[in-house]
């Protein structure tokens, strides 16, 4: 074995050694990860293609959300989806998408993962962009002609964006 190939062999051997100590678990394929990884972070880098307008969202809302979240997000059997930050200082405070949520991307992420409550995962990405636009509109955050997509949604500024501080009790 030449010096060079010995060095290459050693590097390779240590790499496999560091690689896995137990050799248990199989590699995840890219396709598997793609189908599992629905996470959308605050910068929205992972947002899918597609788009939806406030007007389209009003229709989605009417059919898929209103029975639980009330007329124009006023709340009913379940959480109100409309409010403003001033309501955080009243007693008792009211926390809603409009008054409390720091990121608009979270609304897309949560609706896509978990709503409508009884049949999550049944809306298309276009419908989710649309209903997200609608919920932001009824909170006065985007105007009635807005259309949202992967570019515009992360740029939406939420009123309470600066309202969160790290818990001083916890370690960083």
């Amino acid at each position: 074995m030449s010096k060079l190939s010995l060095a290459v062999f050693l590097v390779f051997a240590t790499q496999t050694l560091c690689a896995q100590s137990y050799g248990i678990g199989r590699p995840a394929t890219e396709a598997e990860i793609e189908s599992l990884d629905v996470t959308i972070g605050p910068e929205g880098r992972e947002l899918p293609d597609g788009s939806g307008s406030v007007q389209e969202g009003a229709q989605v809302y009417e059919v898929r959300c209103k029975e639980c979240h009330g007329e124009s997000g006023a709340g009913g059997d379940h959480a109100a989806l409309v409010g403003n930050p001033e309501q955080l200082k009243q007693a008792p405070p009211i926390k809603t998408v409009g008054s409390f949520w720091p990121y608009a991307t979270t609304l897309f992420d949560y609706t896509r993962r978990a709503m409508p409550f009884e049949e999550p995962g049944t809306l298309t990405d276009d419908q989710i962009y649309a209903v997200t636009a609608y919920v932001l509109h009824i909170n006065g955050i985007v105007d009635e002609n807005a259309t949202l997509d992967r570019e515009s949604l992360p740029k939406v500024e939420m009123p309470n964006r600066g309202g969160f501080v790290r818990d001083p009790r916890s370690k960083p």
């Binding site: 930050p85 955080l88 200082k89 405070p93 949520w101 979270t106 969160f164 501080v165 790290r166």
Partner: peptide, 18 residues
């Protein structure tokens, strides 16, 4: 964010109160 954060009386909220 919406849940499991702690609102203070000035309207700010503690996040990651683990």
């Amino acid at each position: 964010t919406s849940k499991y954060t702690e609102l203070m009386e000035d309207g700010t909220a503690w996040i990651f109160t683990f």
